[in-house]
Design a protein around this nucleic acid. Sequence first.
DNA 1: GTCTGATTGTGAAATGATTCACAATGTGAA
DNA 2: TTCACATTGTGAATCATTTCACAATCAGAC
Lengths: 208, 208
Amino acid sequence: MLSSENTGVPARTVERLVLYRRLLNGLTEQGVEFIHSHEIAEKANNSAAQVRRDLMAIGYTGNPARGYAVNDLVRSINGLFEQKRDQKAALVGIGKLGRAILGYFALRQARPRIVAAFDSDPAKGQGEFAGCPCYPVDALTSVIARDGITVGILTVPADFAQPVTDLMLVAGVRGILNFAPTPLKTPAWAVVDNVDIATKLEKVAFFC
Amino acid sequence: MLSSENTGVPARTVERLVLYRRLLNGLTEQGVEFIHSHEIAEKANNSAAQVRRDLMAIGYTGNPARGYAVNDLVRSINGLFEQKRDQKAALVGIGKLGRAILGYFALRQARPRIVAAFDSDPAKGQGEFAGCPCYPVDALTSVIARDGITVGILTVPADFAQPVTDLMLVAGVRGILNFAPTPLKTPAWAVVDNVDIATKLEKVAFFC
DNA sequence: GTCTGATTGTGAAATGATTCACAATGTGAA
DNA sequence: TTCACATTGTGAATCATTTCACAATCAGAC
């Protein structure tokens, strides 16, 4: 589950690289051309050593005196995602959470692009939300295959999570971001990441 | 950040225990009295050894021949959270995501209970959503102090995340579940968990 | 009552992630 | 040009998490 068979870059590092890129974006416009590992660390709430290790993972190399060239570094991080740049995602389950996520991604033009949404309620499963075309779940297999969608976002009630997952994987999806509070049974090649909000909240409360 | 100063139970283990409890709930009604580590592992998508280690962490001990007594085990996991059972949470940022979370928790009566919501828009910041009273952010400090709220849920735009965090921590909040795509500066004693949906989606796409 | 066999509890090993610590390096100052 | 200095890149150490593997244990069969 979420192995790095891909490039050898560990999952944690990928997450932090995405963060670094966000922190660096727009810095050049503010006249910042170079930045040191400890400055990135300060922004990212982690250690300078951690930052250097992460950049090492993508083979990016800075300059002992100047630090890292902001623009170049951002390009370098983008390079890591270049290959997967045009992946498409589909969201299943147009409840409140589903709509919130659709809205967020439409607004930000974030990647991967969400190009289809599905719902079992025929009333919701047509038309569009946040500029994203919606279909009834019956159309799931054909639309995913037709559009070459490879990433699925699951915002369905727990009971539907597994059947929808099975459908998606058959149709061509290889990775799933699962918001349903259920572990998913998937073949080993599938990439799954679970975001269980209730559990996370309980965890935070526990450690207070 | 999210250390286990508390009880010595590591954060990962706490998350899995919450999951086990959910998987076990209602099993007794189905006539299942005992369950083996490998059966729990099967449901939870992990290994039997992992399950046994996790139960070891809370000092729960099974029976080599029967396995674990379902009811008793659930009680034991509940025991871990007993002390924190009546913690209260507040949500700040009544956007789409905020409302989705409010709705979800109200419905499930999940813990910690969300007892207040805040928004900077005065129009939203009064009345209630999903049975949860809403206030303008001006009232944040006083309401949090008044109600003894210790957990904060941040669903505000990135720019507001830090100032709202500062307010909450001063008012008495000790733990924050942060959905804003920004690292938060907090004192060491504060517990913070970040849920960055855009990053997670990009990560899944990357490993596909 | 004894024996059998599957399962638990847990040291020890393996794996993975982070931090340490320092030689190598490039820059700007003298 | 040379020097001094802060920073990089990175082996090695540390710390955390998971898996291995096996003695100890319990229930049920005989």
